[in-house]
């Protein structure tokens, strides 16, 4: 019984912006299926009365003063850029509205 189908893997891969070859999709579907069935056990003990913990330590209200620090020098900012133009990162055309 498969929880994660190939279609599902393909959908999630698109959501995660990772191109997968068809053989990768097939393999991942099988592997993830096994993993997901196993980890689904957590919902057995995760009953409504148990609160979720998103932080291991109970810290709150960690703030910074509104005081400027020096910015990264522009050459450092652009140093790793695959492509740049006039101080800006050049990226391929973007489809979809802003």
């Amino acid at each position: 019984m498969s929880t994660i189908s190939r279609d599902e893997v393909a959908r999630v891969a698109a959501l995660a912006r990772i191109d997968l070859r068809p053989d990768e999709v097939a393999r991942l579907a099988g592997e993830l299926d096994v993993i997901v069935e196993s980890v689904a056990r957590v919902s057995e003990v995760a009953t409504a009365d148990v609160p979720a913990t998103s932080h291991p330590l109970p810290l709150t209200n960690v703030f910074r003063d509104d005081v400027p620090e020096p910015a990264l020098p522009i050459q450092d900012v652009l140093a790793g850029a695959p492509q740049q133009e006039n101080g800006r990162f050049a990226v391929p055309q973007i489809l979809g509205e802003e």
Partner: peptide
Amino acid sequence: ILGTYALSAGYYDAYYGSAQKV
């Protein structure tokens, strides 16, 4: 991909949400 799946709409409570309770 596993992580994206665990967070995606409809699966959060069963997976990520439950795991945080554990």
